[in-house]
Design a protein around this nucleic acid. Structure first.
Lengths: 206, 206
DNA sequence: CAATAAACATGACATATATCATGTTTGTGG
DNA sequence: CCACAAACATGATATATGTCATGTTTATTG
């Protein structure tokens, strides 16, 4: 069974798959961070989700028929991915109700997250959404640091902008303000959350 | 087995459940349309999804632990809902791999939809999103009419606004323009899509 | 059918965010 | 370490959309 899971490594400039590619595998993030991206013909990008170790992807319907990927998957730095042919995955689920239940649970959580994000995009201002993003990433990829919480994932202002539906310039401006207000510090290589409470307050000041 | 599914009817002013209520049942829409809504403390609303006959809801993670509903479910007019205690639903899935696979497929599709919506909110203008909405509803709830496609679901400009993250006034203005441009006609009680192609062109003019 | 509320319409104005432009700082590969 | 590119910064201006206000039309209900 488990030998059907193979490990692959990717670097920062690779694609795990591209939007429109046929779906062949079910994936699990083993190490590193993967971003799920959709783009428009004119090159605008929208990052739907940052996948961390333990996250599943392509565990869904697109893997069930001959469909193609609705978005692309790109590593943020070096990552290691476990994958399984979709046929094996499919059979494994049929034989293993526990696994199927886990996938249902996982997809349900992903759907809730996605709907929460929809609500944020629809109702919150840009600075609130950016604060939310930072709070979320602090919880998911942060490590303690003498001055706060350091984010392990390398993320530029442009990356942030794509995650919350604003332009790079707006992300830079808001981050400059957060910096001035001592909420955060540092740049892509060393992002530091200095005042988590302050960010949380901003995030939920809807 | 099937006798565990019970039918309940609701009217336009009822709630099927409210945000925060404990999750007790798995649901299926039998007749009518149900909207899934999230709201802020200040009364702003965001409609996440219109559920039509055949759609499942609460088939997800919130139903798996002692969690509560992340949003509320309200009928758009008269609806009929089938439901099953979550314990029975859970057991049914464990015994029935086909059902579990169907749920995984359904959730995957819902997740894709949600992510498509995220992309629209992040990258498209209000008029494009409204055009998208109308095209989508024409496909899902439209019936042929001498002058185009009539939407069976009764939907005010405010409802539309909540579905695409704009204000009621903006929805009214855009609909007025669509009316002037002969793309649509009519009001909540009798919404008519007069030029589906035109709307599609606008929707994808990203 | 009258009374009342809901839905639609439209103007004037405010504002958050996008766009474009230009410059500085920081990182990186040869 | 130098050269080059990426990332960050910030101003000026444009614009889509929100907000508030007021009026009309269309439903609904007693």
């Amino acid at each position: 069974m488990l030998q059907e899971l193979t490990e692959t490594r990717y670097g920062k400039h690779d694609y795990i798959f591209r939007e429109g590619d046929p779906t062949e595998y079910f994936h699990i993030v083993k190490e590193g961070t993967v971003k799920c991206v959709k783009s428009t013909p004119e090159g605008k990008e929208c990052t739907l989700k940052m996948l961390m170790p333990g996250d599943l992807f392509c565990c869904d319907a697109a893997a069930f028929d001959g469909a193609s990927h609705p978005g692309s998957a790109q590593p943020m730095g070096d990552v290691s991915i476990l994958r399984m042919k979709k046929k094996s995955y499919f059979e494994m689920l049929r034989r293993n109700p526990d696994a199927a239940m886990e996938v249902i649970k996982y997809l349900g959580n992903r759907l809730n997250e996605a709907q929460e994000k929809t609500k944020d995009l629809a109702l919150d201002r840009a600075d609130q959404r950016l604060a939310s993003l930072l709070v979320d990433l602090a919880a998911r990829s942060g490590i303690p640091d003498p001055n706060g919480i350091r984010l392990t994932v390398r993320m530029t202002r442009e990356d942030m902008a794509n995650m919350i539906g604003i332009t790079t310039e707006t992300a830079i401006r808001i981050m400059s303000r957060f910096k001035r207000d001592r909420l955060v510090s540092g740049t892509a290589n060393r992002l530091l959350i200095r005042d988590l409470k302050g960010l949380k307050a901003l995030a939920s000041a809807s």
